[in-house]
Nucleic acid binder design. Sequence first.
DNA 1: ATTCTGACGTGGG
DNA 2: CCCCACGCCAGAA
Length: 112
Amino acid sequence: MGDNSNFFERSYEIARQIPFGRVTSYGAIAKHLGATKSARMVGWAMNASKNDDTVPAHRVVNKKGLLTGKSHFQGTNLMQQLLESEGIEIIENQIQNFEQKFWDPTIELKSK
DNA sequence: ATTCTGACGTGGG
DNA sequence: CCCCACGCCAGAA
């Protein structure tokens, strides 16, 4: 077990733990999975999670706090709307006070 | 089989 | 701040 074919599921496990009103990045998830250089695969995993509505994919953005995955959601602005409904302010695809909203799995889940 | 493209990140200039 | 090259690896053409 522990083979990386579970990479998608492991990404989902972490995404599900992102608290309401908080966000994290693809790279942060990848890092926590021990695959720092495979941030792209996390994005791919989120893309594949469309069927799974238990995965809050809208809470995963890039390292700068930009909504780079926006166009992969249903509506034109669904991702932004979901985040705004959680109290996150967004201007020009950029999350405001990003550092404050950022939830780092490597820190928050460190005691494991 | 080969090439290109990404929901990315890092490093160099 | 910007732009570019590279590493990563799954899919599409």
